[in-house]
Design a protein around this nucleic acid. Structure first.
Length: 337
DNA sequence: TAGGCCATCTGGTCCT
DNA sequence: AGGACCAGATGGCCTA
């Protein structure tokens, strides 16, 4: 915009000017690189480039001399003022653009920090990024959950941990977190309906080895699984155990690495358990009701509720879409009853 | 198409 | 004076 002649468009308010031009104007693109932008200003803006306050007096004096008419008499006040304001406008404009660049950098820094935060909260996916607000909420919940562990001095059950993590999160985020924590809806059903719910179990509702979906007959991560959103499932075990003791090999990394790591999980639709959204995060902590995923009985609950035996795995619940819907219906029935 | 999320611009305020 | 920080406004992109 500095390349524009200083005509009326320069005098008009900045906000109006900005609306006149496309967002990614040349200047704006250049502003992404402030250094090159400065150079551009030198090249294109003639005498625009200067450090703030520098030479301005000289130039304004010059301007004032210019403002004398042929007879050496000063021009009328109004005219002169207009000329001076033109310089000022130029300078203000330049400073505004510098401020914009700083603000952009600042926000980029903030976003970088948020990205770093995303990597340490219990749900990280490069392709399915948590929103800023959800990242902050999840981080807060995570800190709170961990501090509760410290305060109480013992491990809560998985359900409580997940409940705490998901407080106040939106449904998609809750789904994502649940997926990352590798809960499964069947555990939920078992916990909700107790033994009576066992009839709802499908042949593979009991634990089966990961990487393979019996119904699909294909390795997990293929077929109907949403592979486009390759997620790095957070290993609950790692966060948990690293907090207390050394991690087992299976729990060493929260991230999905390589073919031996857990497959991507289809988190679309599986955990659509919430009946309503809480409008007031501070008051409503009902989300826990929707995550009554009781840690599976059996091998998981031996030395620790969450400790996995060396050769056992968390179940990866790989559902077909319609199957997920069926489960969701069942869950809804549970809630409504 | 509405709504959510985001990047950017902008002007105000506070601090150094 | 100038920079950092903040919040409002705006428009683009994406998804349900």
């Amino acid at each position: 915009m500095l390349t524009l002649p200083f005509d009326e468009s320069v005098v008009m308010p900045e906000s109006q000017m900005c609306r006149k031009f496309p967002r990614e104007s040349d200047d704006q693109k250049q502003m992404k690189n402030p250094e090159s932008f400065s150079k551009q200003i030198i090249l294109r803006g003639k005498n625009i480039k200067r450090s703030p306050g520098e030479d301005t007096e000289k130039e304004e004096e010059e301007e004032e001399r210019e403002e004398e008419d042929e007879n050496g008499l000063p021009r009328r006040r109004g005219l002169r003022k207009k000329k001076t304001s033109k310089i000022r406008m130029e300078r203000i404009k330049f400073r505004r653009q510098e401020a914009n660049a700083r603000e952009r950098n600042r926000m980029h820094g903030l976003n970088d920090a948020l990205d770093n935060l995303r990597k340490v909260v219990p749900c990280y996916s490069k392709t399915q990024k948590l929103s800023k607000i959800e990242t902050l909420r999840l981080a807060k919940n995570y800190i709170w959950a961990l501090s509760e562990i410290l305060r109480i001095g013992k491990r809560p059950d998985l359900l409580t941990f997940v409940q705490n993590l998901c407080k106040g999160l939106s449904q998609p985020t809750t789904n994502l977190v649940a997926g990352c924590l590798q809960l499964n809806a069947r555990s939920f059903l078992m916990g909700q309906a107790g033994e009576g719910a066992h009839h709802t179990r499908t042949p593979y509702s009991t634990f089966y080895p990961p990487y393979h979906s019996p119904e699909l007959g294909t390795p997990a991560g293929h077929g109907t699984l949403d592979n486009s959103k390759s997620m790095k499932p957070y290993n609950y075990c790692s966060a948990y155990e690293s907090f207390y003791e050394s991690t087992s090999p299976e729990c060493a990394s929260p991230q999905f690495e390589g073919p031996l790591s857990p497959p991507p999980i289809n988190y679309n639709g599986i955990f659509s358990l919430k009946q309503e959204e809480s409008l007031d995060y501070g008051k409503n902590y009902n989300y826990g009701m929707h995550y009554c995923a009781v840690p599976p009985r059996g091998p998981l609950g031996q030395s620790s509720m969450f400790r996995l035996p060396t050769e056992s795995h968390f179940p990866y619940d790989l559902h077909l879409r319609n199957q997920s819907l069926t489960i969701q219906d069942e869950l809804n029935a549970v809630f409504h009853n």
